[in-house]
């Protein structure tokens, strides 16, 4: 099973769980499983069109999925997936 690391601000939607094992073959399946198991997470991960929100980055190992095959990026049993919120702003 791949392991998903949940960032601190989203843990209140995963019962304060930081690491979640998911049985999936792609990032798309991983996100679907996550949001099925934790429905409150959905609006924080996906936009109205069901796409991963622009302020959410997903890393497979050290690589941003935008530099791989996006949501179609494959995951293996020992893959570490990190959800990384984009931290930005300004006056």
């Amino acid at each position: 099973m791949a392991t998903v690391i949940i960032p601190t601000p989203l843990r209140k939607f995963t019962n304060n769980t930081a690491k979640i094992d998911i049985n999936a073959e792609t990032i798309e399946e991983t996100v679907r499983e996550l949001t099925l198991n934790f429905p409150d997470l959905k609006k924080h991960l996906l936009d109205e069109k069901g796409q991963i929100r622009s302020f959410i980055n997903i890393f497979v190992g050290d690589n941003d999925i935008r530099d791989l095959q996006q949501e179609k990026t494959s995951v293996k049993k020992d893959t570490l997936i990190s959800i990384v919120p984009a931290i930005a702003g300004g006056r």
Partner: peptide
């Protein structure tokens, strides 16, 4: 005071 840029990118809980 937070700007709209701050709000758009803000995360829950933090």
């Amino acid at each position: 005071i937070p700007s709209e840029q701050d709000r758009i990118a803000a995360q829950p809980y933090f």
